[in-house]
Write a protein that binds this DNA or RNA. Structure first.
Lengths: 238, 238
DNA sequence: TATACGAAGATCGTATACGATCGACTATGG
DNA sequence: CCATAGTCGATCGTATACGATCTTCGTATA
């Protein structure tokens, strides 16, 4: 048996530890949906599958726990996190906050090409609604939605805020599936709001306006969700 | 030698694992300043001191790394994080964002007693400035400042946001020391801004106004810091 | 039948062992 | 004297071993 680090060679010259390898494997499978919420992660079993020992796996699982993708219970084990309505509310509200900020902080750095790319993506989203309204695919629509917003916040110069945005998106897409499967009525409004957001950015609107627009855009989706479930109507909002 | 979990009995009925124990020990020593930025954390050495083996210590260190209190370099080791001007900027900006939100979300839940307590704390801060201006103690002033703000954001109903606020404060106080040692000129303005913030909350001002006031209060301190260092004058702000 | 008790299996938490890696120091050649 | 290659010690990364704990399931008893 091989012992020691045995660094897996990733790209030429790049080596990753086994715990990093285990983390990336599990993270990928959770975010991609291959590991669905509720799936149990038995350390020894995962270790065997990945061809490493339990120690790196354990470390990977703890990292995933810190990101909210996995729930770890003492002396019991790890499962891929579920996300109940309350957790959904918390996560969406937090994402609304940090994504609004990231979008505003990025606004001045978005290039004309990127703006055009975002418009093109939004055009495809609109086309999905107008041309094939009877075959609306919420999964694909949600994916495009992610790509659209990525363009707008990826230039965020504050890596802490950007990291929080990524974590929020990961949690939502991995644990909740496609947003627009839950609130399809938001699809049309989203496309229109995207257009307004692009205009604000293009015309160099005050960053405060951009932040508010991006924030509202997301919290409106949360409101639509809450209206459906009628849960926590008195939860304070911003 | 004792092996196995050996759960330390904390309070009656409460048991914590050794990795939790190690985490709490290290976290406490870092936040309290007993372990200063730059201090090396040699796993085997820490393990001996705490009376556990290296595995739980390693896990604790990784948790601290995720919180930004420790820097862990592959195959080299862990050190208590320093915080350079750029990191300070990132952290303050993020804290400005989440603390503003947490304060606004808490505003409606703050009781009259708590409001009075906050006023009392702010009164002591004012007294420090007015009565003994020649013996201004920035450390004590910073502590009171923390207590003041804690009252205003601790009711935040969104635990994710509240957690981010705590992490931000921890990072700043542990790694940077007392804020008002760096920008003593902000002390007087802070007391005045606190008063305005309390008034807004007491009179039930719109949460958006409260959020903005709380956010500005913090970002003004950041601005004062940046004015001193003259670093990154073009960094985008909210 | 329902409940309480207890034993067995699965799984976790931790200790220990050891190869792998990095940084510093030393030696050697230019 | 400086640069470069080689060696050594300190420390990390991972594998393995094993006691501790939780859950489950069967059995006895009211």
């Amino acid at each position: 048996m091989i012992t020691g680090p045995v660094d897996i060679h990733w790209a030429p010259g790049v080596v990753v530890s086994k715990s990093q390898f285990a983390y990336e494997q599990l993270h990928g499978r959770i975010v991609s949906g291959a590991l669905a919420p509720g799936a149990r992660l038995v350390l020894a079993q995962v270790a065997t599958e990945l061809g490493v020992s339990v120690v790196p796996v354990r470390e990977a699982v703890r990292r995933l726990e810190a990101e909210g993708l996995v729930t770890f219970e003492k002396n019991v084990g790890a499962t891929v996190s579920g996300i109940d309505p309350v957790e959904y509310l918390y996560t969406m509200q937090t994402l609304s906050l940090v994504e609004g900020a990231a979008t505003a902080l990025s606004a001045r750095s978005v290039t004309a090409q990127e703006l055009a790319a975002a418009r093109e993506i939004n055009g495809r989203m609109r086309a999905m609604l107008e041309e094939f309204p009877q075959h609306f695919d919420p999964v694909e629509f949600t994916r495009l939605n992610h790509d659209f917003h990525s363009v707008l916040f990826e230039h965020c110069p504050n890596p802490h805020i950007l990291d929080l945005v990524h974590r929020g998106w990961n949690r939502l897409t991995a644990l909740r599936g496609s947003t627009f499967s839950f609130v399809p009525e938001r699809a049309g409004e989203s496309v229109a709001e995207h257009e307004r957001l692009l205009d604000l950015i293009e015309h160099g609107a005050p960053v405060a306006d951009i932040e508010l627009a991006a924030r509202r855009h997301r919290s409106a989706t949360l409101d639509a969700y809450l209206a459906r479930t009628a849960a926590h109507p008195d939860f304070p909002t911003l």
